[in-house]
Amino acid sequence: MATGAGKGRRAFLIRLAQGASLAAAAGLVWTYVLRNQARATPFALRPPGARDEDEFNALCIKCGQCVNACPYDTLRLATAWEPRPIGSPYFLPRENPCLMCPDIPCREACPTGALGREMERIEDARMGLAVIDTENCLSWQGLRCEVCYLACPVRGKAISTERRLAPDGGYVQMVPWVHSEHCTGCGVCENRCPTEEASIRVVEARLVQGRMGAHYRLRGAEPGGVMVFDPPASPDAGRPSTEPTVPGLDALNLGDLP
């Protein structure tokens, strides 16, 4: 009993639904591709000052001005199908590390704010975090090396060496430690490490860094994350104060402590 107008309207509505479904299907596939690309971010070390993953991915217009501005040709733009978000800047420390220019020319060149203005000194950059493979590090295995310690631009702060007696007691080892508080992730250490594959690598910090949580207390911990494990001289030294600083949690074990 459909009238001509009714039929026309029905046909129109069907076409509308078809168009909308097509757009929705295409949109879903498209969004999937986008999010998948963006997910590759943890495998790219960004230029200094880069904002958080989501913001950086959204803001960077993939113009390459940071790449051109770097005097050491450190940065490059990811090509398609690399395991890194397409078109965005990154660097590979083993090939070419960031030499931490004090005037930060890459950041100065960025027109979008993807490399943020807030960072004042290049030492505040957090491009990644160096981690040492102690099973392959020459120094940890008893040879003298300490190349990373000597090469690190944040000398003596980002990497320290610790003297210790080798397990068989015959000689002194100088083992390197990385301190996240100062490491900028520039990758000079990874670049210079003499082992066949670098035994110190820079990776995005959140891939390797844990978080203890506020309710744990450390004996003899220095504030700021550098842990030097010193057994306390007297049984009471280094014990948590009885003032609970995290409400509730601290009361938990107080009675059980020796």
Binding site: W30, V33, G87
Partner: peptide, 18 residues
């Protein structure tokens, strides 16, 4: 229109990435 809607939804510049 699709590019702009997807940019809004995905939080990324939809056409620039592809």
């Amino acid at each position: 229109a699709l590019v702009l809607v997807l940019s809004l939804v995905a939080g990324l510049a939809a056409f620039e990435w592809v």
